[in-house]
């Protein structure tokens, strides 16, 4: 369970996240949705101690993220941000091996190497393992980063817009992989998503933000509703039941 209590982030006078409290349940996929500038990425960064909070506290599985040693948190929670350019030139396998750093401290054991191979296979990167990252397409690179994060073998995995750069096919397979990870290993995956239909289709829990505050939090049935979405996005959105799922139409 991730517990955010009165979390606040300010830049000068601008309050980006404003005393936000939310509980993200353990297990399954939780999506964070909301319009641009609602504070989604900022919130995710604060949950993962990448960004200093100006107020409030966050606990992940009972550990306070700012008070607990960083290497302890690293075995509990992993985060992948949106833009990951590396100045270093690495192969896919090198990158994924870094996911074992919290355990190996840079000297991977046989067990660590087995983890790496499993993560590579899990993301279907076996054939690309020895390629350099700068030789890959955006989607392949994204998968390599996700493989690294899964290789870190944490209960909680936080991903900031993991579907960016992915075409429909790869977006679908990324979401299926993540859902599989929650079912196979009992992981808790928290995502920032822009496409509310992906959020609706795959999530177990949805957190909606608006203007740095919590607009709604609950199951898909509770949040993906016409009245809720109208408030959150400030536009008319129809919600239809399609194939037993709630699909939002917002194209016109």
């Amino acid at each position: 369970m991730i517990l955010a209590n009165e979390v606040t982030k300010r830049y000068g006078d601008a309050v980006v996240v404003d005393g936000l409290s939310v509980t993200i349940p353990k297990g399954g996929i939780t999506s964070i949705i909301g319009p641009n500038g609602a504070g989604k990425s900022t919130l995710l960064s604060m949950l993962a101690r990448l960004l200093k909070m100006d107020g409030g506290s966050v606990t992940v599985g009972g550990l306070d993220v700012t008070a607990t040693a960083s290497d302890v948190i690293a075995r509990r929670l992993a985060i992948l941000r949106q833009d990951n350019h590396l100045s270093a030139r690495l192969t896919v396998r090198d990158l994924v091996t870094f996911g074992r750093f919290p355990y190996s401290r840079g000297r991977p054991t046989l067990d660590d190497k087995a983890h790496v191979e499993r993560a590579l296979a899990y993301l279907d990167l076996g054939a690309l393992a020895d390629r350099y990252l700068d030789e890959l397409s955006g989607g392949q690179r994204q998968r390599a980063f996700v493989a690294m994060v899964l290789c870190q073998d944490t209960d909680y995995v936080l991903l900031d817009e993991p579907l960016n750069n992915l075409d429909m096919k790869h977006a679908q397979s990324m979401m299926k992989t993540l859902r599989r990870a929650t079912r196979d290993f009992g992981k808790t995956v928290v995502l920032v998503l822009h496409d509310i239909n992906f959020a609706s289709w795959y999530s177990d829990f949805v957190v909606a933000l608006k203007d740095g505050r919590l607009a709604a939090a609950g199951t898909v049935d509770e949040v993906i509703r016409e009245d809720m979405l109208r408030d959150i996005y400030g536009m008319e959105i129809q919600v239809h039941a399609v194939a037993g799922q709630r699909i939002a139409l917002y194209y016109e």
């Binding site: 960064s45 993962a48 101690r49 990448l50 040693a69 960083s70 290497d71 302890v72 948190i73 690293a74 075995r75 992993a78 985060i79 992948l80 941000r81 990951n84 350019h85 590396l86 100045s87 270093a88 870094f98 996911g99 750093f101 919290p102 994060v149 870190q152």
Partner: peptide
């Protein structure tokens, strides 16, 4: 060398 966010996520102080 991976940059600040990844270094922190991997548990460096």
């Amino acid at each position: 060398a991976l940059g600040r966010p990844m270094a922190i996520s991997l548990g460096l102080n």
